[in-house]
């Protein structure tokens, strides 16, 4: 049994047909061709699949598609298209190795930066995102730069 779920994806109204229990992640990747959001653990533990639901970062691997009917979803594609300053900062600091975790980290951190969070609260927030290559220090340095830019404006 599958139903049609309609929601706003990076500002555009979209529909996806799937079993309502299908996690949002699979609809994004396979139905809506938004593969920037990555499947890590499938249990909401690692943060690789982080998206933004009505302004709040959430994991999409354990969020049923049916729960986003009528909601606003932003993904890393939206953040990349908007040219968020954290993108350039991550590249300046060469903040990554394999990068599997980076779309989720970029999504959460950019959202928290835009919401006015401090570096300390962002660092604690990023405990929801695992990085195995050990690039956390560089990622935090990039975030620190962007928060400083934000706070001087």
């Amino acid at each position: 049994m599958s139903g049609k779920i309609t929601f706003t994806l990076n500002g555009t109204l979209v529909s996806a047909s799937a079993k309502p229990t299908t996690p949002l992640l699979f609809a994004l990747r396979n139905t809506l061709d938004h593969k920037g959001t990555r499947l890590g653990c499938g249990e909401g533990h690692c943060g690789a699949c982080t998206v933004v639901l009505d302004g709040f970062p959430v994991t999409s691997c354990n969020l049923p598609l049916s729960a986003v009917e009528g909601k606003n979803i932003a993904t890393v594609e939206g953040i990349l298209d908007a040219g968020h300053p954290l993108i350039a900062a991550l590249l300046t600091h060469q903040a990554g190795q394999c990068g599997y975790c980076l779309p989720g980290i970029l999504t959460r951190a950019a959202t928290m930066i835009d919401a006015g969070d401090t570096v300390d609260t962002i660092r604690d927030g990023l405990d929801a995102n695992l990085c195995r290559c050990g690039a956390q220090g560089r990622i935090l340095a990039a975030i620190t730069d962007v928060v400083a830019q934000r706070d001087t404006q």
Binding site: K35, G36, L80, L91, G96, C98, G99, Y100, P103, L106
Partner: peptide, 18 residues
């Protein structure tokens, strides 16, 4: 030198998984 592959890893399409 900046990594030639890092920017591509921020989004879709670079990894085998995609």
């Amino acid at each position: 030198a900046p990594r030639v592959d890092l920017a591509a890893r921020l989004g879709a399409g670079y990894l085998l998984h995609d």
